[in-house]
Computed example of a mutant assay.
Amino acid sequence: MTDSVRDLTSRNKQIIKDSYDSYFTRRDLTFLAGVIAEDFVQHSPDAPSGRTAYLEHLAEAPFAGGTSSIKHLLADGDYVAVHHQMTLPGGDEEGLAVVDLWRLENGKIVEHWDVEQPVPDRARVPNGMF
């Protein structure tokens, strides 16, 4: 890996990490408003494309006010994957196992994909979900 790709990868990981911290810890969309591209493309069936529509969705989403604990953060150039445990306000304390995949260009988030599932009973996954 060249130094320029390593620097890009590191920068993109930090942008995504800071995005999760801003949204789930500080409950603030200001940072996200600055890093989501105007023409942001969403591939999740329950969320809209476009920066303004996506930010409005985040403010009202079922997981707004929930928590996220990042378990794995992987990056390769423009792509960053986050494997995290998300709990919903008033929901099951085990929450959801989520993998988000983000694509960035020039320091802006331009695309998002995700998969999620409820964290099953520990007896079903003796080695753990995370």
Rank of each mutant, 00 (worst) to 15 (best):
M1A: 10
D3V: 06
S4C: 08
D7W: 09
T9H: 04
R11N: 08
N12I: 00
N12D: 00
K17A: 14
Y23E: 00
Y23F: 10
L29Y: 02
L29W: 01
A33D: 11
A33K: 11
E38C: 03
D39L: 08
P45M: 01
D46I: 10
E56T: 10
E56G: 15
H57N: 15
A64V: 03
A64P: 08
G65Y: 15
G66H: 13
G66K: 10
T67C: 05
K71N: 09
G77R: 06
D78L: 01
Y79Q: 10
Y79S: 11
H83D: 03
Q85M: 09
Q85F: 06
M86P: 03
P89G: 14
G90Y: 07
E94Q: 13
A97G: 13
A97T: 13
D100F: 09
D100T: 11
L101E: 05
L101D: 04
W102F: 15
W102M: 12
N106F: 02
N106I: 01
N106R: 12
G107C: 09
K108V: 00
I109N: 04
I109S: 04
W113R: 11
D114C: 06
V115T: 14
V115W: 12
E116K: 14
E116Q: 15
P118K: 10
D121K: 12
D121E: 14
P126G: 07
